[in-house]
Amino acid sequence: MSNFRANVAMIRALVRRSSNELLRVPGAAIPGVLAPTIFFLGITSAFGGLTLLPGFTTSSYQSFVIPVSLMQGAAFTGAATGVNLARDIEQGWFDRLLASPAPRPVLLAGIVLSASLRSLIPATILLIIAFAIGAHWPGFLGLGIALVVVMGMATVAATWGTSLAFRFKSQSAAPLMQAGMLLFVFLTTAYAPLDLLTGWLQDVARINPVTQVVEAARQGFVGGVTWGDTWPGLVALAGLAVLLSAMALRGMRRMTA
């Protein structure tokens, strides 16, 4: 069997295996799947009045917050991937993979790809509810971009989670996996446009690459889709994914050092 075909088969097998977490213990996944929707409903109900501020870019706070909750769902999914990997390491399952001749990048791809596919589940639930309560329809292009960004963000969050799992080899690193990515997502234009953020958050959001990611996912919901609003987000995602994948791979190699 060619190497390429063998590698694809390995990735597919690993993705299938991690889908068990969802299909065979459905109860355990429910809080993680619903949390972004709950936050979405909560944030929009509580802070909906912010659209009344002069200079706010849309009149629908729901449409404004959708991309944030989408990113949050992706971040949760990625963190959960890290927690599951930490459990696999604790229980010795990961030794089985490490002792096999599967190339290391293939092992990482199997873990990360499953996170990126899985992130579409909380996203779908969120979008259905958001549209039901009156969020703007972003157009097919806008929706497509948002979903690509969700999968990209889940990839980034999963490489972050796996890096930490390799580093700490313990599920007790879970809060770090979750909080780290949530900070990345919320220290952006999550609650309000850049100009309306106060002091320090404005500065942080300006340099935080995830701000570009949120804005790329947001554009269809609050206005028209432009290439100019899209590419910075994609570049930011690619950059983060490459950086964190390298970190995760290094962590995996150190496991057997």
Binding site: G49, P175, A179, Y191, L197, T198, W200, L201, V204
Partner: peptide
């Protein structure tokens, strides 16, 4: 058990920081 205690303090603190930064202008609302 840091995994129990960390969310308890850290989570509300982070949310506090994010919300005051993100929604801070709300005090200007009528």
């Amino acid at each position: 058990r840091p995994q129990l205690s960390a969310p308890l303090i850290i989570f509300p603190t982070l949310l506090l920081a994010i919300q005051t930064g993100g929604a801070g202008r709300a005090v200007q609302l009528d």
